[in-house]
Structures are given as structure tokens and as C-alpha cells.
């Protein structure tokens, strides 16, 4: 099938599922950590938010790289 780039399509599907769901989940876990009231929870939450920010930076990089 030349009119559909299945290779690119699969990559988009997998990457956006992993990325989109992953970032939403990380952010949620970050909120759990933040609201746990314990230091270890807050640190873990902080790590989650740092990972989310890394994801955002990756997104900006993709835009610049285009």
C-alpha cells in the first residue's frame, strides 16, 4: 500500500500512546506524591514533575527540529 505510510503510522500511534498516557500518568502520580504529606512522597512527586517537564522540553525540541 503506497498511499499509506504504515511505518510512520505505527510509530505515531505507539509514541503518542506511550508519551500522552505516560505524561498524564506521571503528572497524576506527582500529585499523589505532593499531597501525601510525607517527605519521601514529595520527593517522588517532584521527580515525576521533573520527568513531565523533560517531556515538554522534548516536545519543544521536536518543534524546533522540524
Amino acid at each position: 500500500m503506497s498511499w499509506i505510510d504504515t511505518d510512520a503510522l505505527w510509530r505515531v500511534m505507539v509514541a503518542s500512546l506511550v508519551g500522552g498516557v505516560g505524561i498524564a500518568a506521571l503528572f497524576s502520580v506527582g500529585l499523589i506524591g505532593l499531597s501525601s504529606g510525607r517527605t519521601v512522597g514529595r520527593v517522588a512527586g517532584g521527580v515525576c514533575f521533573v520527568l513531565v517537564i523533560a517531556g515538554v522540553l522534548l516536545g519543544v525540541y521536536v518543534m524546533l527540529d522540524k
Binding site: D5, A8, A15, K66
Partner: peptide, 21 residues
Amino acid sequence: FAAETSSATVILTSTHFGFPL
């Protein structure tokens, strides 16, 4: 939040892999 995160990732991955959505 979930909707916009989904939009941003789908748009940016499609840009990256050259599959125009």
C-alpha cells in the same frame, strides 16, 4: 488536562515522524 496532553503528544509525534495529522 488529559485532553490537551493527548493533543500535544499526538500532534508532536506526528510532526516528528512525518505523518501529517
